[in-house]
Amino acid sequence: MNITLDEIQNFIAVVDTGSITSAAQQLDQTVSAASRTLARLEQKLKTTLLRRTTRRLELTDEGEAFLERAREIVAAVENAEEQMATRQSRPAGRLRVDAATPFMLHAVVPLIAGYRERFPDVELELLSSEGFIDLLERRTDVALRIGRLKDSTLHARPIGTSQIRCLASPAYLARHGEPGTPADLPKHSLLGFTEPESLNEWPLLDEKHLPVRIKPTVRAASGETLRQLAIEGNGIVCLSDFMTHADRVAGRLAEVLPQHRTEFRQPINAVYYRNTAISARIASFVTYLSEAIGENGFCE
């Protein structure tokens, strides 16, 4: 039969990207070459792995069964390569990292140069997803998650925490004044999230010593959008320090109602799906991030 690793990787790429064209782009091949490779694999296996419809490709039952084994084969090869590199104390190979866009931009990207200098043989792929993803399906090695984790079979390693606080630009406060108590907030323009609604509960206590739930004047799905709105003087926002620490230092944003703020720190975790010994690539990245974030001001 003599199935090759290239054929297996080609098949996985077609499944993961959803089309032969996208797989060809990912593998830096022509579409015709990727199509021939898939056909050759099916011929060797004497079965149909994918049904081709006018709109999409669908796995057959045989395809689903083979996909599971194919992923195991590729993981075994990667682990073998990794073990050889580890023997030389040099983690190597591709590492796919997923994080929400704000955390990727403000916390991860500034640390990449230092990580690459220390581990030049690791090939990083940085992905941004705003929601929770299936790490196995997306072929992601490690995801960085902010907030409390749901019960999961994933392994998690804490890498830091980040305080949440209310902020506004000096220009906004100069025009509208600074609220004296949380009860003054409804008089102001408030910037909040479209969802989940729990993000519009701010770490402030009202006169009854209950958390303050605000009604946003302007809503946005992205924390980065809310940050930019606040910097431009559109209102008061509540965001995590990993996004806004540099803005406070530079004077672009100032804390509002600090005397009423409760200590609410968002946990930051690295999660990964492998239930075997953590790979050298993942370990090198998570450890580097943990050490760097622990020294960073936004975890003060």
Rank of each mutant, 00 (worst) to 15 (best):
I133M: 08
G147L: 11
A99S: 09
I133Y: 04
G177P: 02
G147A: 12
D141N: 10
E197R: 15
S189L: 07
K150S: 13
G131A: 13
T194R: 14
A168F: 07
A107C: 08
F119L: 00
F103G: 03
S162D: 02
A171L: 11
L191Q: 05
L149W: 02
A143I: 03
I159G: 01
P170D: 05
S152G: 07
H155F: 12
L105T: 14
L205D: 12
A113V: 10
R145N: 05
K208S: 05
P182A: 04
E117S: 09
K187H: 11
G177W: 01
K208G: 00
A174L: 14
L126V: 08
P110G: 09
A156S: 11
A183V: 08
R175A: 14
D121Y: 05
L135M: 01
T194C: 14
H209K: 13
V142T: 07
H106W: 11
H209Q: 12
D151E: 13
P110N: 08
I133Q: 04
R148L: 12
L111D: 02
T194K: 14
T194E: 15
P196Y: 13
E178C: 15
I159Y: 04
K208I: 04
R94L: 15
R138W: 08
C166F: 01
I164T: 07
N200C: 10
P110A: 08
T181E: 09
R138I: 06
E130D: 14
S189D: 03
S152Q: 06
R145C: 10
L95D: 01
R94K: 15
H209P: 01
G147F: 10
I146Q: 10
A107R: 06
D121K: 05
S129N: 10
M104F: 07
R138S: 13
G160L: 01
K208T: 03
